[in-house]
Amino acid sequence: MKNWLAQHARALLFTLRRLLAAPVSSALNILVIGIALSLPAGMVVLLQNVQGMAERAVDAPQISVFLSMDAGRDDTARIDRQLKQHQAIGKIEFVPREQALEQIKQSTGLADVIGGLTQNPLPDAYVIYPKNTGAQALEALRDELQKWQGIEHVQVDSAWARKLEALLRFGRLATLILGVLLGFALVAVTFNTIRLQILTRRDEIEVSKLIGATDAFIRRPFLYSGMLHGLLGGAAAWLIIVTSLLLVNGNLAELAQLYASSLVLRPLSAGDSLALLGFSACLGWLGAWLSVAQHLRRIEPR
């Protein structure tokens, strides 16, 4: 067992030394793998972020009810009473038109524009938190409220999130396809890299076979090499994603300031980072294994 571990450690060290002996070509190989991986992995990160935002919106679906501009106090009082008594509604929140205007003034920096208005263009509104948040229940409630007298417009605020959810499903499928394709590309890149290594080390393989090396012994450094290429490629992809996010977040902060909200893209979680590294290492190993199975058999001592 100890012997076996020592053999593996030696093969790994040997492979590392080989990798460092040709730093430029190793770095380029690793970069190719890194770029190929960073595309699907980056898309996954983006999708996760968008999904996170959508989920926060979907979590507490609201219905905004805007009253008609000409609704009088009587109408408002009636609607208030009806809403409070409605079976399907959990909680309501009244937003008087003056308060809504004030909010817009403060939060969007449009104070100058609003100050110039002679009349408040906003209606009174209610924010409703329904008890049942299923899509059908929300729509039924919306349709019902829409018919009430004095109500101008009813909006289900989570509708956009549901549309986004559908879009996200599409995005995930696209990412999956891209990921599979670029996974194949990674396998192909390591396959070729290892093929070249095998060809340049033909003499060594031949001599090793002549003096009693088992196939496992000969295979080992190549498999480690493929795995290391994959692993380092995965690390390169991780760096590419993290750096890109840092750059994007810098720009996004400016944009978000203009819209008076905060938008930050979160990077990969520790678990996802490990998954990325593990996945790329496995694919590198697979490429090396295929290459070794294909080419090593042809080298027999003469």
Partner: peptide, 15 residues
């Protein structure tokens, strides 16, 4: 491999 480990091979071209 296990057969060859018990043999010492010496080549004209050294290898």
């Amino acid at each position: 491999p296990y057969l060859r480990r018990n043999l010492g091979l010496i080549f004209q071209d050294h290898k």
